[in-house]
Design a protein around this nucleic acid. Structure first.
Lengths: 337, 337
DNA sequence: TTGTATGCGTTATCAC
DNA sequence: GTGATAACGCATACAA
């Protein structure tokens, strides 16, 4: 396993390491004959330069750390898929870190990424969506931000300016609510999400405002939080339906909860959308695969990632970039409403 | 951005770098007073040692490269989720590489990972599932295998022994076929997958053998290949139903194709499973979220990843490990059959 | 066009 | 306990 180095190549080619390095990076003219000789030896040994050593002198790794909370929710793979494509074009490589929404895991990855000398960071989920994030955890992000550029997706560090790109989730909620209202619904429920989460809070506020603005009653039992999973959607819809006076429509925190809700409604014999209209959020691939197809709101997930990467690149280039980028969500009307 | 080094710490503490290094790794006794002084300075500057330099001398990065074809198919996140949990316990970090099933992307990542000095490699999808993989691409894997341990998940390099862990997909297919047959089906279709893919081929063989063994007719129009997506499932089922004599049941290459197929069947007014039984493969989270719930076969996805990581670890420790690990699939009967 | 020498930030081997 | 100093593998300024 003794890895072969430029010295080995140089010796075998009767040249100096400098020359080998030159053909490796073609950073200076090398006589064709010697270049070929060297290349042949490189090829022969399948020599590949040690990126660690290289980065150590360059002070560049070309790596971007990406923290995301949950790869079982397609939304996130879609986002970092967009980021990855952008990264490739710009010559970066993503270092994907699945935090499982665990703060301590986030912390571990944060230090790991710094030590590994990533040149930038894209942060999704976890603490940047937490409504009561301990100062120490905020500080960690602030600290790393002093060293390398950081871009937050759909999140923030309350009280601290950060570069961030986000969907206008408030507007997204309004779109979906208006759509339901236009269809004659006035008994509308809100399902899923966590009260500890800023994104949930934002949607909930928009939901409440729309209800009040239209002088619709908002029953306590029509607003049920939990988490972001299919199971949760199923559970919450089941609970809602057990009640004497269920809403005629629900908006769900995301597509997964909506899918669970749909299943619960259908399994109780309700017809969708006639007896129960259901809307999701995120427009993941799944939404169009459901039966009936799910009405939802697109966050332009790939674009979210692409933009974040673009901003990060500018930041790395020491360019000035405006702090906040807001993407406009789009209502996708399908069959479930 | 001038990063702070052990020298800076040493200078400020009036000690040598060696001592700083000692408290960093506590590799040798250091007087408590000096240790505290050093630690204070480290804390004060939020100093974090450069992992590149460290790895350069240690010759250890603690990194494992993971190639996977498609993060939009939940199966793969499930697998590397399992691998990740195992990796963490063993002190490794995963370097996730989304190849998008693109051979050239695989090649790029392969060299990138080598250069970055990963200590092992987990390979999924792409060329190791290709029935006609160009020699050059096989050779690439062979080359890297000479340098670092490689574990293939659900794939192989024809003609070359490799460490691999796989599900017995042949058996999985038999399970599902027997299940359908037990339910009285004899007109059974096969939907999705690609003929260029070894896994598809394996399932198809099992399918055909089961059909022949039972003396069932296998119509050409009942076997429709394509890819592994929801859309494909929808399309193939639609085509199948347009035919005069459709099967009464179909087994699909995976859950996604099955979901698409379900949708197509339902949208044509067919009742599932009464008029059309549909089975998937992989037992992704989605399968239980469908309506009706999808009968499928579990590959024990997380375990696949966990095992691969365990084997890799042993290999890295220079332990002998048997080349092939086969996991036994499990039939999950739900409502769609 | 090519070679020599030095530095990148750590760890490790010696001495003291 | 602590401090010089030589690696680690590569890139590059400076010479030649």
């Amino acid at each position: 396993m003794e890895s072969i180095t430029v010295y080995d190549i140089a010796r075998e080619a009767n040249v100096s390491v400098a020359t080998v390095s030159r053909v490796l990076n073609d950073t200076a003219p090398v006589r064709t004959s010697t270049r070929q000789k060297i290349m042949a030896i490189i090829e022969k040994h399948k020599f590949q330069p040690n990126a660690l050593a290289r980065s150590l002198v360059n002070k560049k790794t070309g790596m971007i750390g990406v923290l995301f909370p949950d790869s079982s929710n397609m939304f996130f793979p879609e986002v970092f898929g967009g980021a990855e494509r952008a990264a490739q074009k710009l010559g970066y490589t993503l270092f994907l870190c699945n935090t499982f929404s665990d703060f301590s895991r986030e912390s571990e990855y944060l230090t790991l990424l710094r030590e590994r000398q990533v040149e930038g960071l894209i942060f999704m989920g976890g603490r940047i969506n937490s409504r009561h994030c301990p100062d120490a955890l905020v500080q960690e992000v602030l600290d790393i931000q002093k060293k390398i550029p950081v871009v937050l997706i759909n999140g923030s560090l309350p009280g601290h300016p950060c570069h961030r790109v986000k969907t206008n989730e408030y507007l997204g909620t309004e779109l979906i609510m208006q759509h339901l209202i236009d269809h004659g619904h006035r008994h509308i429920g809100f399902l899923g999400g966590s009260g500890e989460t800023t994104t949930t809070f934002e949607k909930l506020q928009a939901f409440r405002r729309m209800m009040h603005a239209n002088r619709f009653p908002v029953r306590k039992d029509w607003v049920r939080l939990g988490d972001f999973s299919i199971d949760c959607g199923y559970e919450l819809m089941s609970q809602t339906l057990e009640h004497r006076n269920p809403p005629t429509a629900v908006m769900c925190i995301n597509d997964y909860v909506a899918i669970g809700a749909m299943k619960a409604a259908i399994s109780r014999g309700l017809r969708i959308p006639e007896e129960m209209a259901i809307a999701g959020f995120d427009d993941t691939q799944l939404s169009s695969a459901m039966n009936p197809e799910l009405t939802t709101v697109s966050q332009h997930s790939e674009q979210l990632g692409r933009q974040a990467m673009a901003i990060l690149h500018k930041l790395i280039q020491k360019e000035k970039v405006k702090k906040l980028t807001v993407l406009v969500p789009k209502l996708i009307v399908r069959q479930s409403t």
